[in-house]
Each structure stands twice: as C-alpha cells, then as structure tokens.
C-alpha cells in the first residue's frame, strides 16, 4: 500500500458569493478568506498526466519551464494567476481554468514531492 503523503495548503481566495457581487453604497469589500485544503497526492499524480505532456518529469528544460520539486505554494499561485488570466499563456489559462482549488492543491502536493532527475 502506497503511503499517501498529504499536506495542507493555504489558499487565499476572494470571498465570492451572490451578496458580494452587488455594489452597495458605503459597503466595504469582503476580506480575502483563507482556505486550508488538504492536497490529495494520488489525485495530483493522476491529474499530473496532463502537465507532464509538456513539463518534463525529469525537470529538463527545452522551452517549457520545469515544475518538478516546486514548493506547493508556488504552483498554487501560478495556477491561480493563470486561472484569473493574470498570466498570459492561453494553454495554461485553459488548463488552470478547469481545475478546482482541491485539484490545484493536489497537483501542488504531487509536484512538490518530486525530485529532479539527473540528466541522462
């Protein structure tokens, strides 16, 4: 039985609900809420199949950046930025846009757990 590594990730997310979208005179915007999400490494490993078509699992760079061994918060931030279209690449915007916060956390935990491989 595989030992499933779990880690918790803090996600700062804007509180979005029906009430906060309406602009009310004098109302202050709701503060960001922090969500603690447990990264599901096994889910991350499955989902990573989509990433490693381009981002090499070896950590090699041939025109697409390595994400192997990234600290989990880096990947969460990058994915959230693509999701919010704060970063420009349409491939990544499309990919990140379909992931839930739980799925992003799972990916982050999985890639954090990997080590770069020595070049062949």
């Amino acid at each position: 039985m595989r030992n499933t590594k779990k880690a918790t990730i803090l996600l700062a997310a804007m509180a979005v609900d029906a009430g906060s979208s309406g602009i009310v005179s004098g109302a202050t915007p709701p503060p960001p809420i922090a969500r603690v999400i447990e990264g599901d490494r096994a889910l991350g490993e499955y989902l990573s199949g989509e990433c490693v078509t381009c981002h090499q699992l070896s950590g090699n760079y041939d025109g697409i950046p390595s994400i192997v061994g990234w600290p989990a918060p880096w990947l969460v931030e990058a994915m959230n930025d693509f999701k919010a279209h704060k970063r420009a690449n349409p491939v990544m915007q499309t990919i990140a846009g379909r992931y839930s916060a739980e799925e992003i956390a799972a990916l982050a935990v999985y890639f954090e757990s990997l080590m770069k491989q020595p070049p062949r």
């Binding site: 078509t53 381009c54 090499q56 699992l57 070896s58 760079y61 025109g63 697409i64």
Partner: peptide
C-alpha cells in the same frame, strides 16, 4: 514556436 519545441521534448519523454 519555442513552446512547441519544449512540448516535443516533453511528450516524447512521456
């Protein structure tokens, strides 16, 4: 174009 070069290296390794 450079992204496509990276993709080729990635997918063939995959």
């Amino acid at each position: 174009y450079e992204e496509s070069i990276g993709w080729y290296a990635g997918i063939t390794a995959d």
